[in-house]
Measured scan of single mutants.
Amino acid sequence: MKKYKITVYDEKTGEKHTIEIEMSEEELEELAKKLAEKHNVKVRIEKV
């Protein structure tokens, strides 16, 4: 498992949230996809 920083940005409201999380790359990609689809936000992932 690796550490990642996830930034979620909502273009409508301008809200931006960043968290650090430790998980596998596959789980992370699935999480990012679900966030983007369900909440209509942009998701950026960076390795820490």
Rank of each mutant, 00 (worst) to 15 (best):
T7P: 00
E20K: 04
D10Y: 10
E11H: 10
G14D: 04
I45V: 07
E20F: 15
I21E: 03
K16R: 10
E46F: 01
E29D: 11
K42S: 12
I45Q: 01
K42I: 15
K16N: 08
I45H: 02
I6P: 00
V8G: 00
E15K: 10
R44P: 01
Y9H: 04
E11A: 09
E46M: 02
I21M: 09
A36Y: 12
L31M: 09
V8F: 12
E27V: 05
M23C: 13
E15W: 14
Y9D: 02
K34Y: 15
K12A: 12
K42H: 07
K12W: 10
K12H: 10
K3W: 15
L28I: 11
I45Y: 03
V8L: 10
E30W: 12
L28Q: 03
L35V: 04
K34Q: 09
H17K: 07
M23K: 01
T18I: 12
R44K: 13
G14K: 05
V8E: 02
V48T: 06
I19M: 11
K33P: 01
T18P: 00
K42N: 07
E27S: 09
K34L: 11
N40E: 06
A32W: 15
E46Q: 06
Y9I: 09
H17N: 06
M1D: 04
E22Y: 15
T18D: 03
L35A: 03
H39S: 12
L31F: 14
V43L: 03
V41L: 15
E15T: 11
K34C: 11
V8Q: 02
E25Y: 08
I6A: 00
H17R: 08
R44Y: 10
E37D: 09
K47Q: 15
E46I: 09
T7E: 05
V41F: 11
V43M: 02
M23D: 02
V41M: 12
I21G: 05
K16Q: 14
K5C: 06
M1C: 09
K16Y: 15
M23I: 14
I19V: 07
L28E: 03
E20L: 13
Y9M: 06
L31T: 04
K47I: 15
I6E: 00
K5I: 10
K16I: 14
K38C: 06
E27D: 12
K38Y: 11
E22I: 11
L31N: 01
T7R: 01
K3A: 04
E22S: 09
E46K: 04
L28W: 05
Y4H: 01
E29N: 11
E20V: 14
T18C: 08
K3T: 06
E20Y: 15
T13V: 02
K16W: 15
N40D: 09
E29T: 11
V8Y: 12
K2S: 14
K42V: 14
E20D: 05
T13K: 04
S24D: 11
H39K: 14
D10K: 03
E46D: 07
I21T: 04
T18E: 07
L35E: 01
K47L: 15
A32S: 10
H17F: 15
M23G: 09
E15H: 10
I6R: 00
K38M: 15
S24V: 08
E22F: 13
Y4C: 01
E30Y: 12
I45C: 04
L31E: 01
K47D: 13
A32R: 13
S24T: 14
A36F: 13
S24M: 14
E15L: 13
Y9E: 06
I19R: 03
D10R: 02
E26C: 13
L31K: 02
E46V: 08
H17A: 06
E26A: 11
Y4F: 07
K2Y: 15
V41C: 11
K12Q: 10
T18G: 02
E25R: 07
E30Q: 12
H39D: 10
V8W: 15
E11L: 14
L35W: 11
E25L: 09
I45P: 01
G14P: 00
L28A: 11
Y4D: 00
E26R: 08
E25M: 08
N40W: 09
L35D: 00
K47T: 15
Y4V: 02
K12M: 11
K42L: 09
S24R: 11
V8P: 00
I19S: 03
E26S: 11
E20N: 05
I19D: 02
K47F: 12
K47N: 11
V48Y: 02
V43D: 01
Y9K: 02
G14I: 00
I19F: 15
I19G: 01
E25A: 07
R44D: 08
V41Q: 06
E25V: 08
A32H: 07
E30D: 09
K2L: 12
Y9V: 06
T7K: 02
V48A: 06
E29P: 05
E11C: 15
K47V: 15
K5R: 15
E46H: 05
Y9S: 03
K3H: 05
E29R: 13
L28G: 03
M1E: 03
K38R: 13
I45K: 01
A36E: 08
E22M: 10
M1Y: 13
L28M: 15
N40A: 07
H39Q: 10
E11M: 14
V8R: 00
L35P: 00
K34V: 10
L28R: 02
K3S: 03
E22K: 03
K3G: 01
A36C: 11
M1A: 09
T18K: 03
E29W: 15
E15A: 09
K33F: 06
E11K: 13
T13F: 03
E26I: 10
T18W: 05
I21C: 10
K3D: 00
A32C: 14
T7V: 07
E26M: 11
K34F: 13
G14T: 02
E30S: 09
K2F: 15
K47Y: 09
G14M: 04
R44I: 15
M23S: 07
Y9R: 02
I45M: 02
H39C: 11
T7I: 07
I45S: 01
K3C: 07
Y4K: 00
Y4E: 00
E46T: 07
A32Q: 10
E25P: 08
K42R: 12
V43Q: 01
T7L: 04
I21N: 01
K47H: 15
L31R: 02
E26P: 09
E20A: 04
K33Q: 11
E11P: 12
T7D: 02
K34G: 06
L35I: 06
K42G: 04
T18Q: 05
Y4A: 00
E27A: 11
E27P: 02
L31I: 05
T7F: 09
A32I: 15
V43I: 12
L35S: 01
Y9C: 07
H39R: 10
K12T: 12
D10H: 06
V41I: 10
V43A: 05
E11Q: 14
A36W: 13
E46S: 06
V48M: 07
M23E: 01
L35C: 09
A36H: 09
